[in-house]
């Protein structure tokens, strides 16, 4: 796996009071503005988590998914982790195993291929993760 196709690893899934959280590595070779994130979808054990039950947390701030592409002054530093917080209606169970299907599409803000169209980076990962303690 290289920098452009890796967002989550074996330690990425952790429990929260109302669900689970995924720690995300920026899938590129440099830091990017959060507005570079076009879409994020996640399914746990095959069941997609609705967008209104997701929050994108970074730099001590938490954003609704619909507001993520508007964050062009918030930098996702290459060595930091963003967190995708999932409200599943119940606390996550530490030690449980889940199949996580993660999909994201980025828009690289310096690679304009033609007017108004920027090179995308699409990452799709399906992994089995064990829930870690609250981070």
């Amino acid at each position: 796996m290289a920098t452009h196709d890796t967002v989550i690893n074996k330690q990425s899934l952790s429990a929260t009071d109302n669900g689970l959280s995924l720690a995300l590595t920026v899938p590129w070779y440099r830091s990017l503005w959060v507005s570079s994130v076009s879409t994020v979808t996640v399914a746990i054990d095959g069941k997609e988590v609705p967008q209104d039950k997701l929050r994108f947390r970074i730099n001590g701030k938490s954003f609704k998914m619909e507001d993520v592409p508007k964050q062009w002054e918030e930098l996702w530093f290459m060595q930091d982790r963003a967190h995708l917080d999932m409200d599943l209606g119940a606390a996550g169970e530490v030690g449980a195993d889940h199949e996580v299907t993660f999909h994201t599409e980025l828009r690289l803000p310096y690679m304009q291929i033609k007017p108004g169209f920027y090179l995308p980076n699409i990452v799709h990962q399906v992994v089995h993760l064990k829930v870690q303690a609250k981070s």
């Binding site: 507005s35 803000p109 310096y110 304009q112």
Partner: peptide, 12 residues
Amino acid sequence: ANADFGIRRDRN
């Protein structure tokens, strides 16, 4: 440096 002229979604 990077010329990130597409950081905004509504316009360059």
